[in-house]
Amino acid sequence: MTGGTTKIFMGELTTMEQPEAISVDGMPQSGKPLIRILLADSQAIYRVGMRKVFALEDDIRVVGQVERVDHLADAVVRHPADVLLMEGNLIAGTSDVIPEIVRLAPEMKIIVQTSGTDEAHTVELYRRGVRGIIPRSIAPDLLVKCVRKIASGETWIDNQSVTWVIEAYRSQATSITNPKSQPRLSPKELSIIACITQGKRNKEIAFQLGTTEQVVKNYLRKIYDKLGVSDRLELALYCLHHQIHKKASDQEGAMVVKAGVNGSASH
């Protein structure tokens, strides 16, 4: 890249001038597809440093930068990018920033730069849709390599994080198939599940239960969350495997018997 001039206003978004090496069709002269990067970092020194690193690469172009997380959503919309390179501290203590970015720009890949890593944080970032986690101290050539890999659709993950993610997957899979960790379902939820396995649509279920389709949707979302399943077939399989309805009717029967015994005793 021969480098266009740069305008930086602290705390505001800025775009770079079109570099001379970029042809009109958006392809760099090198022939590689252009990778557009959005930088989100609270520290100017890092933003400047990263831009200098990327300025040496013909196929990478920084299209915007942001200093604060509350400017991020706006930046994502105004400056379409292939990769968002974000400082981990910007999203510390938040839980909705990454899902919101993923919702606004589902095609954009997110890389998070962290000062230190821990298991829960790492797993959560990957779970929410982050494609790569890198240290703040990453070497420039490795940073460029990481950006290219992630832009091409790969995931950047170190050996330790692979172990953490697999462990999280295993424990989630274990808890979903473990009968001891079953959540309780209300009679209404059980009847909705029964309707689903009979092939009924939400509208039909709503009609049968005397409620609205939206209420059925809300119930379904709650059931999916409770059981950790993601669609109707998985829901049916879960109930079949755990004999949910049999247990529910057994419990119901036991309560009727108990009520009967108490009723007899009082007479």
């Binding site: 779970r127 997957y169 979903i176 198939t177 379904l220 979302r221 999916y224 993601s230 998985e234 495997h241």
Partner: peptide, 18 residues
């Protein structure tokens, strides 16, 4: 149907031994 545009979760489908 759920009225959401949720992204697929990281977890793959769980296999039930049935």
């Amino acid at each position: 149907e759920l009225g959401v545009g949720e992204k697929p979760r990281l977890r793959a489908s769980v296999r039930f031994p049935i």
